[in-house]
Amino acid sequence: MSIEKMILAVITTNPKKAPSGLAVFHCDTQEEMYKIGGNLEAILDGIAHSISDEIMIIVKH
């Protein structure tokens, strides 16, 4: 069985809530989070999903 979806990276403004074991990008502001999210989306060919106001994940579908 192949893996269909996978979290490639996490971007957060609250490091305490970010999961471990993944590439986590710490940001100071939400704008910075969106900017990094946009870049990672293009580079990793994944979709930036918002889990909460503080955490975004890049998922490969």
Binding site: Y34, G37, G38, E41, I47, A48, H49, S50, M56, I57
Partner: peptide
Amino acid sequence: IMNIGLPQR
């Protein structure tokens, strides 16, 4: 339909 995180998208 789906979750889109970035305001630009």
